[in-house]
Amino acid sequence: MIFDFELIADSIPKMLMGIGLTFQLLFLSAILGLILAVLLLLMRISGKWYLSWPAQVHIYIFRGTPILVQIFIIYYGLPQFEFIRDSIFWPILREPFGCAILALTLNTGAYVSEILRGGVLGVDRGVLEAGAALGLSVRQKFIYLTVPIAARLSLPAYSNDFISLMKATSLASTITLVDMTGIARTIVSQTFAPYEIFISLAIIYMILTWVFQKTFGRIEKYLSRYVKPEGLA
C-alpha cells in the first residue's frame, strides 16, 4: 500500500481543530473527578458504615464496568425515563458534552479515590505518632501530615490515571461529540483511508501523553524536594 503523506498533512490540522474539546473534556472531568475522589476517600476512611458503603459501591460499579458502557448508559439510557427529561438536570444530560463529562468524572473519580487511598495508607505510622506526640488533633494530623505525604505517594499512579483519562475522552466521539477522534472518524468515512488518519491521530495523542508525563515528572520532583533520594542518606 502507498502511504499518502499529503492526506496526513491535510488532515492533521483538521483533527487539531478538535483539540480544544479534547482538553475541555480532559481538564473539566479531571478536576471534577478529583473532587469526587477526595469525597469518596473521606467517606471510605470515615469509619462510618453508612458513608463508607455507598463509596465502596460507587467505586465497585465504576471500576467494574467499561467506560464505554457507562457512557452509553448515561447518554442513551437515562433519557428513557420521563422524570429525567423533566428534571432540572436535563439541560446538562440533553447535551452530549454534559453526558461525557458526567461519565468521565464518575469513572475517574472511582479510580483516583482508590489511588489516593493507597497514598493515605502508605503514610508511615511513625510520622502520625510523632504528630500525636506533638499534640496535633486528628484533623490537624490529617491536613498537615497525611495529605502532603499521601499526595506525593499518589502522584505517580495519579499521572497514570490522568493519561488514561485523556485517552478515554476519545470515547466521547461515540456520542456525537466532535473531538479529535470524532473528526478523525468523519475524515476516515469520507476518504476510506483509516491507516493514515488513525496513525496521525495516534501520534497527536502520543505527543500529548509525552507533555503530560514530563509535567507530572516535574511536579513529582517538586513535591519530593525534601525527600532524600534513597541510598544517599
Binding site: 442513551y76 433519557p79 428513557q80 427529561r85 440533553r94 447535551e95 452530549p96 456525537t176
Partner: peptide, 11 residues
C-alpha cells in the same frame, strides 16, 4: 438506531 433514539429523547 442512535439517530431515532436521540430524536425521541429530544436531543
Amino acid at each position: 438506531e442512535a439517530q431515532y433514539l436521540d430524536l425521541r429523547n429530544g436531543r
